[in-house]
């Protein structure tokens, strides 16, 4: 669909119509001719119908075309994702790590773990760094089947690429760590 910023008068539209009619009567065709419709007012567009039932575009009262879905909300060049919520409160609060520096300042960083009821801390892989095992909380918005998340610790902490959540549990209530089969 091509749009030009040229306002077209009703007279020019009549002329175009006459020209098309004459071509049809004479039986002459012009396959190379390109017909450009120019519509730039609300009234222009009002007699038409947008593709896809108007899911993606609409015409504003001032005659401009606008996207219904504005993907890049903060105009940073990256597509943003928007989801609605039926609740006015947070059901999933991101896990965070908080520490105190030698100067007494509180440092806090978020982990890539969304919503948890409990966390168990232990060196699961015996590499000298604490690993974090998160018990998911129930939100009511999803099926009670959720996944235990493990944030594998390292010298750089618990970055997002070392957070794994593939162990399912249903209706999680509590979590603990133990070597029940003595295999180390």
């Amino acid at each position: 669909m091509k749009f030009a910023a040229v306002r077209q008068s009703s007279l020019s539209r009549v002329l175009i119509s006459l020209l098309l009619s004459l071509l049809a009567i004479s039986g002459t065709s012009s396959p190379a001719a390109e017909i450009t419709w120019v519509e730039d007012t609300f009234d222009d567009f009002a007699d038409g119908r947008l593709d896809a039932s108007g899911q993606n575009l609409y015409v504003s009262r001032d005659g401009t075309l606008r996207n219904i879905h504005r993907f890049d909300l903060n105009q940073d060049g990256h597509i943003d994702l928007v989801f609605n919520s039926t609740h006015d409160s947070f059901a999933f609060i991101p896990a965070s790590v908080t520490g105190v520096t030698r100067e007494g300042r509180i440092q806090q960083s978020e982990l890539l773990v969304e919503g948890s009821l409990q966390v168990a801390v232990g060196d699961l892989n015996r590499d000298g760094h604490y690993d974090l095992v998160f018990l998911p909380n129930e939100s009511g918005l999803q099926h009670p089947r959720r996944f235990v998340s493990i944030a594998w610790g390292g010298t750089d902490g618990w970055p997002a690429h070392r957070v794994a959540g593939v162990l399912p549990i249903r209706g999680a209530k509590a979590i603990t760590l133990a070597d029940l089969n003595h295999d180390g």
Binding site: I169, G171, A172, K173, I175
Partner: peptide, 17 residues
């Protein structure tokens, strides 16, 4: 070890899992 709700799969023992 994770404590969950009552058995939800065939073959699971009775009680909270």
């Amino acid at each position: 070890m994770v404590l969950g709700e009552e058995a939800w799969l065939p073959g699971q023992p009775p009680g909270n899992i």
